[in-house]
Write a protein that binds this DNA or RNA. Sequence first.
DNA 1: AACAATAAAGATAATAATTATTGATTTGTT
DNA 2: AACAAATCAATAATTATTATCTTTATTGTT
Lengths: 127, 127
Amino acid sequence: MRTQNYSKKRQAIYELLLSTKEHPTAEWIYNTLKDEYADLSLGTVYRNLKLLEKNGMIKSVAVVNGCERYDALTSPHSHFVCTKCSRVIDVFYRDEVPDFIRNMHIDGADRVDYFSLIYYGTCNNCE
Amino acid sequence: MRTQNYSKKRQAIYELLLSTKEHPTAEWIYNTLKDEYADLSLGTVYRNLKLLEKNGMIKSVAVVNGCERYDALTSPHSHFVCTKCSRVIDVFYRDEVPDFIRNMHIDGADRVDYFSLIYYGTCNNCE
DNA sequence: AACAATAAAGATAATAATTATTGATTTGTT
DNA sequence: AACAAATCAATAATTATTATCTTTATTGTT
């Protein structure tokens, strides 16, 4: 039987995403993995990110400076984006918040599937 | 005296944004205005959007399908994005929501300046 | 283990949105 | 009117991403 994720490189991309809290870009993943996989190509990274996203194994959490940022942590949480260094940090909300937000009436919407809550500001590293 | 916004075209871009709830892209603005301003160029639209944004007169509210969407309504509110037709709809939350969110503790953040809350789903038009 | 079928990859070209450059034009001030 | 600064159009350049196409890797079956 053919499993969903049998290729070495796809597996490496997924595991790298699982192991980091960087919420990396395709470029970052490519640069990180090309030491181990010398023949890796950027197109492969993009292709597999799209594929993993479609399978629900990873999520695109934000577009920062025109670059898509990915996360293998798919449980509901939000993010903080540093407007100086573009760092993306996980934010876990208390249970009440999603309910509060979820009950919002939206005029013109037929069905709400999900929402994205992103904070912007300055991170610790940027003082 | 030279006011901040004295050029005809910049004024037209700003007023168009004020008059619509489309949350348009640069392209949309360009196409809408080029009837009246035959010699308008797309670069001018981009340049002035950046400028108006820097002046705080407009806001970038989301990136939908890789396109930046702008809004002249700068009072705090959030948005609904239709994942089928890319329509962007204003969502006005109760006053408590910002407070509730603002009190959230974010580990790694030094200062939170603002946040963005975006809902995704299907709009009325897309049934 | 070998083979054929299929999936995945690399290399490269193509898109698409946005930004930068440059030289001409408009605007406000003297 | 003349001058300087701001703005613009046109165009070229960037940058992130996607598509194409040929080759290589992986899998299930014999």
